[in-house]
Design a protein around this nucleic acid. Sequence first.
DNA 1: TTGCTCCTCACGTCACGTGAGGTGGC
DNA 2: TTGCTCCTCACGTCACGTGAGGTGGC
Lengths: 151, 151
Amino acid sequence: MTAQTAERTYRIGEVAELVGVTTRTIRYYEERGLLGKDSARAKGAHRLYTDADVTRLRELLRLRDLLGLSLEELVELAEAEEARAVLRQRWHSDPSEAVRAAIVEEAIPLVTRQLELVRARRAKLAEFEADLKKKLRSLEERRRTLGMKAG
Amino acid sequence: MTAQTAERTYRIGEVAELVGVTTRTIRYYEERGLLGKDSARAKGAHRLYTDADVTRLRELLRLRDLLGLSLEELVELAEAEEARAVLRQRWHSDPSEAVRAAIVEEAIPLVTRQLELVRARRAKLAEFEADLKKKLRSLEERRRTLGMKAG
DNA sequence: TTGCTCCTCACGTCACGTGAGGTGGC
DNA sequence: TTGCTCCTCACGTCACGTGAGGTGGC
C-alpha cells in the first residue's frame, strides 16, 4: 500500500514474462482489441505497458484459463475490466460524479456474471472430484480383493 | 442397476448428440488415437460405438473442458481409462488374476494424478471467486457512496 | 560499435468447423 | 425408390508458435 506515483512502464518482453505468455499472444490480443491500442505509437516503435495494463492482462488470462472462454467471449466479459481501467485512468482527470456512477453501474452486472461462471465451474469440478474419489476407492478395493487371492 | 446384456451400439451421430460434440470431433479423436480404432471396419463402412465408448468419450471431454488439457496430454492421462476399458472388455474373457491386478495397479496412479489436477483447479477457482467477491463488494460500496452524494 | 530486445510480415500448427461429392442401411 | 445418416477428402478458422529479415534504444 505504498503511494506509487512514478508511472513505471514495461516493454512487451517484460510483460510476457510477468504474466507467463509469449509476446506473440500479447500482440494478438491487441490485434483482436482486447488490449487498448496505443494510437500514439509510431509504426515500428516499441510498445509500452503500464501496471494497469499488466493487471488487465492477468485478469483476461485468468478468465481464459479457468473458464475456457474464447477471445470473443472475453471481449464481452472483459468490458467490466475495460470500464475499470477507464475508471482508474479518469477517476482523477474527470471528477464528474455522474460518470463515476455510470462506470460503476456498468461494471457490477459484468462482475456478477463472472462470479456466476466461476461458481458453475467450481460446482462441475466438485462433481468431477467426487467421481474420481469414488473411482479411486473402487480401484483400491479391487486391488485388495485381488491381492488377497493372489497372496 | 438393471442387467444390460444386449450390447447396444450407437452410430456416430447418436454419440455426438449424447456427449455434446460434433461428429468431426469424434473422428478427429480417433485419428489422434484417443478412441480405439476398429481395425475390423471396412473403408467407407459406418462406425459403431458401445456404451463403454460413450463413457470413455465423456471422461475425455470432462478432462479437456474442466482441466483445459491438450489432446496430447489427454493421451497420457487417459491411459487409465484405456486400461479400464480393456478391463471391462477382458474381465470376463481373460480370467487371469495377474492381468487384472496389473490393470488395477496401472490405473491407480493415473486416477490419482487426475484427482490432483482437479483439486489444484478447484483451489485456483476458489481464489478467483474470492477476488471477484471482493471486487463486487468494493463496487457496491462505491455505488452507495456515489449514490449518497448524487441523491 | 556491439548486443539485446524490439518490430513487421508471413507461413505453420492444433483442434476442430464446414461444405463437396458420393455411398449405404431402415 | 426416397430420405436420412453416414463416408472420405480437403480447405477454412481460431489462437497462437516460429522463424526471416530488419530497425532502435541502453
